[in-house]
């Protein structure tokens, strides 16, 4: 089966025009302006995995902050200046430990902690990930180059329109001397979804 994530061809031509028509009608009817749409687009663009990495690196260095983040992510994010929109679904941060590895999916669609780390990667929205990860999480992890010890329990967390999850990856060994800023660079988008691990300092040297 050929899956279409990216828009192209006749469908794209039709739907891009249809979307434009819908926007124009909304503007004519006074429901919103083009400026509202573009401002929102800029606002969405402004969130990226770096924002999440900054927060999670802070949790690595400050255990009290980490406890607050795990207990009530939205309030803890506010401490760092991230005021999530009122319409944003509830966000929960789950910690990966020596015993438990969490990974997030949205089997129904593409729900993702967009309010803090931006738009999801294409594979996250794709049918292969959504179908397979709940059946064979370790197999999927391997495709991301992530191999976990058999003793670690893997938990696949299904997101929804109302609940989103951000994964706090395990802090790699040998990072005790690193600054918060350096640590944030180890936290990748994949590690915040749980399909990857935080980059180890050795890996950064070899890059």
């Amino acid at each position: 089966m050929v899956e279409k994530g990216h828009s192209h061809g006749d469908n794209a031509k039709y739907y891009s025009l249809r979307a434009e028509a819908i926007q124009e009608l909304l503007i004519e009817k006074g429901i919103c302006s083009m400026d509202d749409i573009l401002t929102m687009a800029d606002q969405i663009d402004s969130r990226s995995p770096e924002d999440g990495a900054k927060v999670l690196a802070h949790a690595w260095v400050d255990s009290e902050y980490k406890a607050r983040l795990l207990a009530d992510a939205e309030t803890a994010l506010m401490e760092l200046g991230y005021d999530l929109p009122e319409t944003a679904p509830k966000l929960t941060v789950l910690e990966n430990t020596d015993d438990v590895h969490n990974m997030a999916v949205c089997t129904l669609c593409s729900c993702y902690p967009r309010a803090i780390i931006g738009r999801p990667p294409a594979w996250y929205k794709g049918l292969a990930y959504r179908s397979r990860v709940v059946v064979d999480p370790r197999g999927v992890l391997k495709e991301f180059g992530t191999e976990l010890d058999e003793s670690i329990e893997v938990r696949v967390i299904d997101s929804s329109a109302d609940f989103r999850y951000l994964i706090l990856p395990k802090r790699p060994a040998g990072t005790e001397e690193m600054s918060e800023e350096e640590l944030a660079k180890l936290i990748t988008q994949e590690s915040m979804i749980g399909v990857g691990l935080a980059v180890s300092p050795e890996q950064t040297k070899s890059i």
Partner: peptide, 24 residues
């Protein structure tokens, strides 16, 4: 409702630049 649907496709890691209409 895709969880557990038969699917043997590998994960496609490619990304594409968003078109302006998609962004809107």
């Amino acid at each position: 409702d895709r969880g557990g649907w038969p699917n043997e496709d590998p994960i496609d890691h490619s990304e594409h630049e968003m078109e302006e209409w998609e962004r809107k």
